[in-house]
Amino acid sequence: MNRSISLLAGVLFTVAASFVGLVLIPDWQFVPLEPVQLDDGTTRPVPPEGSVAEGRLVYNELGCIYCHTQQIRPDNFGTDQQRGWGTRQTEPLDHIYDEPPLLGTMRSGPDLANIGARQPSRSWHHLHMFNPVITSPGSNMPPHRFLYEAIPRGDGERPDEALNFPEEFDDPHHWWVPTDRAEALVDYLLSLDHTYPTGRGQ
């Protein structure tokens, strides 16, 4: 029994050490980070609230993270910034309100750290979400039509929110209207903007 205890103690230390080094210390190091003050008096980053926070949950539950990153690598490392995905490397500060951070590890699709700044058009996002090949021919992103409601085109008026399809994608029988979840998701995507300066170079 004695042996098993010392064996046990030996293996416990190994995990404990890395836990302290890789989990507790980083946590302790990042907690004091404060948002930056911009010249116009606002602060960044902005905590997600209301529909942006709801959209963040939609982003979570649709598993967007499995194909899209939200992190910009340094200038001399890859071509993230040359591709126009960002203007600076993302930093711990950018994620102080992220619960959980959606950094991602796969780029089956492009990075989204600054998608709100890169593509500010609401209707573009809706069309793209409805069926990505409408805006991005050749895309292998799955269509998310289930986020939109089909309203039969009777004699009724066209709803204001109905998607405006290019001719070849038009559905002659239905108007397609974004659900609340679709609107929230687009709100969240439009909120993604890490182009503000953090006062740390880059």
Partner: peptide
Amino acid sequence: IAFGISTIWA
């Protein structure tokens, strides 16, 4: 160091 010591101990 703590980790190294525990390993050496085991």
